[in-house]
């Protein structure tokens, strides 16, 4: 087999092996170690868009956020905002909370702003989640500055 063809044929296998080996090494095994809430759930971006504001969170492996526990309001007491638009989450049944939706890995939320209105520059955001190891974090409340559109 020519060397170049052999090189190309081995790439997918080696790639898959290296990525999966790293991933396995980083997952909390049964959640024996618990991250601080700000590391488990990171708000990584709050940016104006043509339609309003886009908010992005990253969620560490082994942790999840509840869809029903996101909230946004003006930080400076301005006019009420529209409801956050959140994607459909994964279904989870809880004996106390009933059927809920959760997010893992990452989630983007959109805060729409009506045509002619100005997007807020500061927001008070709230979110709440748990570790799959059976520990939940208090609701996080943060005031964030909204970055200008790229």
């Amino acid at each position: 087999m020519p060397p170049l063809i052999r090189f190309a044929s081995l790439l997918p296998l080696a790639f898959a092996l290296s990525a999966s080996a790293l991933d396995l090494s980083r997952k909390p095994p049964g959640g024996s170690e618990l991250l601080p809430a700000d590391q488990a759930f990171q708000l990584v971006s709050a940016q104006r868009t043509a339609e309003g504001v886009r908010l992005s969170w990253m969620i560490a492996p082994g942790y999840y956020l509840y869809r029903q526990r996101f909230a946004a309001e003006p930080a400076d007491g301005g006019a009420p905002l529209a409801a956050l638009r959140l994607p459909k989450g994964a279904a989870k049944h809880d004996e106390h909370f009933g059927d809920v939706e959760i997010y893992t890995e990452a989630v983007d939320a959109d805060l729409p702003v009506a045509r002619g209105q100005t997007a807020p520059t500061r927001l008070k955001l709230r979110w709440q989640g748990c570790a799959e190891a059976g520990v939940c974090y208090p609701p996080v409340s943060r005031i964030v500055d909204v970055a200008a559109a790229p």
Binding site: F7, L10, A14, S18, L22, R26, L35, M58
Partner: peptide, 25 residues
């Protein structure tokens, strides 16, 4: 060729893992 393939793929695998959404701190 085998060694080169492994090195390139390992680097790519590391990069994808570290940059994926939800990467753990």
């Amino acid at each position: 060729a085998i060694v080169a393939a492994c090195v390139v793929a390992l680097a790519a695998g590391v990069a994808v893992f570290l940059l994926r959404p939800g990467a753990a701190p």
